[in-house]
Amino acid sequence: MVEGIRVLDPTIDANSQNSLLAIRPESLNGLTVGLLANGKKNSVEILQYVYEILKDDHGLGAVIKDNKGNASRPCPPDLLEKLANQCDVIITASGD
């Protein structure tokens, strides 16, 4: 760009330092899965449906179900920590 009119950037980048993706397992076989619903109507049903497909196709192991209760708020940290300690993988979903 040619030097002339100088303007300032109005944006702020997302703080991604604390938002790293979890390491993906190579196989789901025998893993404990958490199903975290978001409080929306039908979110439990969607999760159950996804779980049954993954169980049949990939041999998922035990299941732990919970619900964060409020779709518009982040998951409470203590619930996240509990699921992280108990589960190998967690699936979350929204339904309406």
Partner: peptide, 14 residues
């Protein structure tokens, strides 16, 4: 200013 700056040759471009 702490924000990144951008330079343009015309108002229209900016």
């Amino acid at each position: 200013p702490m924000s990144k700056t951008y330079s343009f040759s015309t108002l229209q471009q900016a």
